[in-house]
Structures are given as structure tokens and as C-alpha cells.
């Protein structure tokens, strides 16, 4: 009458497909990953805006960070806003070289589409931003994106 069911069924769940699932997740993250490019040495909270445009193709974008040095570096570099290019502090005179170093990595036909993303803290005064803008104009890098986050309603 009552046959022991437990004896018949195989209690184990097959884990054979587990690696596949994990690999799928892995590939997803590998694709969306942008490896952190060095340490953020300046504190940047970008302002809010509404008329935002997405930046296409990460390889065509270079970033200039402007903000006050983080606490760790405040002792050495002071509390005045500074420019960070790549992973080090810089001045606006280093910008042409920085742009050139990025440009040689980009295939020639795509070079006119290079955009500079200005990640500037909202509390920074326009003086330093203007200096950077002038340097960009002199280096003929005219496509610029003022990085901002969507405005919270």
C-alpha cells in the first residue's frame, strides 16, 4: 500500500548547471564593468540638472575632476579646489598632454568624437573651471560635457 517514497526519489538537486548560471552572471559583470581608474583624490559632488544627455562610448571619453582634496590629501595639498587628471593632481597646464595621451589610444576616425567630461564639484568657483575651459579650447578639445546627476523631484 504505502510504498516508501523517500527511497525512490533522488533527493539531490542537480548542481551541474550552477557553473553555467554563475558564468552568465560573471560575463554580465565583465561586460558592464569599468575598472576603477585609480584613486579619487578630490571630493566631487556634481550638481543637479534636468537637461541631461548620456555619454556614448566610454572609450571616447576622458575625465577631468575638479574639487577640494579629500581629507587624506588636505594636509599636503590644502583645501583649495584642485584638478585631478588620471590618478594624480595636476594643473591646467598639464591638460594638453593629458588629452594627447588619451587621443593616441583612440583610432583616428573616431578622434573628432572625443568628449571631455568635466566632473566638477558644485561648490567650486568658476575661476578654476574657466581656466580649464580655456585650456581645453586652446587644445582644440571643444566637445565638453558638464557632468551632472538627475534632479530629485
Amino acid at each position: 500500500m504505502f510504498t516508501k517514497k523517500r527511497g525512490k526519489t533522488n533527493p539531490e538537486v542537480s548542481t551541474a548547471s550552477l557553473p553555467d548560471i554563475i558564468f552568465m552572471l560573471l560575463f554580465f559583470f565583465m561586460v558592464v564593468t569599468v575598472l576603477r581608474d585609480g584613486e579619487r583624490k578630490v571630493k566631487v559632488v556634481v550638481p543637479q540638472a534636468t537637461e541631461l544627455q548620456k555619454l556614448q562610448q566610454k572609450s571616447l571619453v576622458n575625465h577631468i575632476w575638479i574639487g577640494k582634496p579629500t581629507e587624506k590629501y588636505a594636509a599636503t595639498y590644502g583645501t583649495k579646489p584642485r584638478i585631478q587628471l588620471g590618478d594624480k593632481f595636476a594643473s591646467e597646464y598639464d591638460i594638453p598632454l593629458f588629452l594627447e595621451q588619451h587621443k593616441i589610444k583612440v583610432p583616428e576616425p573616431q578622434r573628432p568624437r572625443i568628449t571631455t567630461s568635466l566632473k566638477v564639484d558644485g561648490d567650486v568657483t568658476m575661476g578654476i573651471v574657466t581656466d580649464v575651459k580655456t585650456a581645453l579650447r586652446k587644445a582644440n578639445q571643444l566637445k565638453v560635457n558638464y557632468s551632472a546627476r538627475p534632479r530629485e523631484k
Binding site: V32, T33, Q53, K54, L142, N145, Y146, S147, A148, R149
Partner: peptide, 25 residues
């Protein structure tokens, strides 16, 4: 292990902003 490595190093930052064209110098 690999997955966790990528999870940690990932920054999914939404790169958005106001695009402007500067005048030539």
C-alpha cells in the same frame, strides 16, 4: 570567485551631463 572580484571592482556609474560645444580659441 571571479564574479565577486568583478562585483567589487565594478562601478556602474551613469555618465550623464549637459553637453556643450566650446567656441574655438
Amino acid at each position: 570567485l571571479l564574479l565577486i572580484f568583478f562585483l567589487v571592482t565594478t562601478t556602474i556609474d551613469i555618465d550623464k551631463g549637459i553637453t556643450v560645444k566650446l567656441p574655438p580659441w
